[in-house]
């Protein structure tokens, strides 16, 4: 199990890096495809955490729908010219320094944190039935609100993509 964790974690991080800075291509399609790989390997991590339902939803919603939408848009906007622009090195260097600082603060805090090894033997299972019961009892209100958010997003997307707004 540990080996699997390291495998999926390494895959997630490697593909994550290739999303933002790929030495071979500036093509947004490549970035999007590596994000798909990141998401799929993250679903692997979810499985290792026994969150089977979420792993399936992660692949189904993120990789299957959201990323296809991304690809769709990237391909529709013909971005040939965009690809030729390179990343400005000076500001990228500054950004890198800032982010490394932030990351080291977070990770340093994590290492000393109170929750490290807080539970010896995790037993929780992300079974579909349990999740569903909880979703429709304790979380009914957020569930309804989220469905409204979806509706609003749908109407918004349709309105925004109309050619002429009246």
């Amino acid at each position: 199990m540990d080996a699997l964790f390291y495998l999926f974690a390494a895959l997630t991080l490697l593909c994550g890096i290739l999303v933002i800075a790929n030495p071979f291509s500036n093509n947004p399609v490549t970035s999007a495809m590596f994000l798909v790989l990141t998401i799929v390997s993250m679903a692997g991590l979810f499985v290792l955490l026994h969150a089977f339902f979420l792993a399936a939803v992660q692949v189904l919603v993120y990789a299957g729908a959201v990323m296809v939408l991304f690809l769709f848009v990237i391909m529709l906007l013909d971005l040939k010219e965009e690809q030729r622009r390179s990343i400005p090195l000076f500001s990228a260097g500054l950004g890198l320094i800032a982010v490394v600082a932030i990351a080291s603060v977070i990770i340093g805090r994590l290492w000393k944190g109170p929750f490290v090894n807080s539970v010896d033997q995790p037993t929780m299972e992300g079974a579909t039935t349990v999740l569903g019961t909880k979703l429709f009892s304790d979380y009914v209100l957020p569930f309804e609100i989220v469905s409204l958010v979806l509706l609003v997003a749908m109407i918004g997307a349709i309105l925004l993509s109309k050619k002429e707004l009246k």
Binding site: M33, V36, A43, F52, F53, A63, G64, F72, M75, T128
Partner: peptide, 25 residues
């Protein structure tokens, strides 16, 4: 024999579109 069987299937099926979209692109 997965206990989220059908969700897994739909996850995989939803990835099927990539082959065709990438071929077109």
């Amino acid at each position: 024999d997965l206990n989220v069987g059908i969700l897994y299937t739909f996850g995989i099926v939803s990835l099927g579109v990539y082959g065709i979209v990438l071929a077109g692109y």
